[in-house]
Design a protein around this nucleic acid. Structure first.
Lengths: 186, 186
DNA sequence: GACGTAAGTCAACAAGCGATTACATCTGCG
DNA sequence: CGCAGATGTAATCGCTTGTTGACTTACGTC
């Protein structure tokens, strides 16, 4: 059994990364302060600069790599519509780290905004468009992306997820139909 | 001919309001500084406090009253789908004041966020839901709102409006069909 | 033309921010 | 053991922010 070392750079960077994800999720890039991240990690403020160079460097490692849509695309587009609808309407994530929520809460940031826009294009939209294929791919991918972005905004950022199950069930069904028509040419 | 007065409180407040709309549109609530607003208005910084009490007071008068969907709902829902699609896909507003863009860029703000969420519910979503009517009204209104919010995000905040007219035309048509199905029960 | 008040100006404050510095302490290795 | 480098700490720097209060200037009235 390896005794947990009192000084362990690897464990410390990991604690900082997790604290950073939580804090960026809750506040967005600008409003999240390095002091709060350090406090949540139970770590001295200066260690953020030491291990990640800057607040920006921390953001690049804590958030940017997770913007991929790979978890969805890797299983192909069959059943894609219902899988997306289930995940975004039925699944209630209580404040858990979601990189797309970070994106929505960091749009106004002059520093983080451009990074995020670039990352989501390359990691999410381009692959989705390619997976759809055909001459209408761009239009279809845009509608899928904007519909999902709006739902994340509504449910997870503005916290307006419908209370009653019946409404959610109607929503899930309508959304499934809509996405299904968009993902697979009829 | 009334000579423009050198000292005119009414004109000054108006200049501040316009400058505030532009600045909040470009930067969101937190990132917009009172100094930049004052500069854009060609006005002394302290006048913002004098006329509006605080940055928050200025925001409440410059942005909140414009979140209504009245411009759309007043003509009823017939042709509503194509009117919305035209406006959000075809119309290219170059950085002009759009209160919904301000909302998207101010989500992370602890001060402005709650105000905006509350205002959009009462001024936009509730009226839309009532206009649609029927047992499915909430689900339908939610899908309309999230689809439009996503488009505003994509086109006007992230600046990802498709370049070529053909893609936009496809997009406009698909969106019209989709919204049409949502706004009027089939 | 003096004068009171509305309109506008100026310098400064306290608070919070990211980043840096100099110092203390622990750990692994010879 | 003894020491060099890795790891952690505390204090502080320079900067920007919203807000404030005292000051100055212009306008309308008599």
């Amino acid at each position: 059994m390896s005794q947990p070392r009192k000084r362990d750079a690897e464990a410390t960077t990991e604690r900082i990364l997790v604290a950073a994800q939580q804090t960026f999720h809750d506040k967005g890039y600008d409003a999240a302060t390095t002091r709060e991240i350090a406090d949540r990690a139970g770590v001295n403020l200066a260690l953020i600069t030491r291990y990640f160079g800057s607040k920006r460097g921390l953001f690049e490692r804590a958030v940017l790599p997770h913007l991929s849509l790979g978890w969805f695309l890797k299983d192909g587009l069959q059943d894609g519509a219902s899988r997306l609808a289930d995940f975004y309407v039925d699944t209630a994530l209580k404040g858990q780290f979601d990189p797309f929520v970070v994106l929505l809460r960091s749009l106004s940031s002059a520093e983080a905004g451009p990074m995020l826009v670039d990352a989501i294009q390359k990691q999410a939209l381009d692959p989705l468009q390619e997976a759809i294929g055909g001459p209408e791919a761009e239009a279809r991918a845009t509608l899928v992306a904007t519909q999902l972005a709006g739902l994340i905004l509504w449910f997870r950022v503005m916290d307006k997820r419908p209370r009653d199950v019946q409404t959610r069930e109607r929503l899930r069904k309508m959304l499934t139909d809509h996405l299904s028509g968009l993902l697979t040419p009829e």
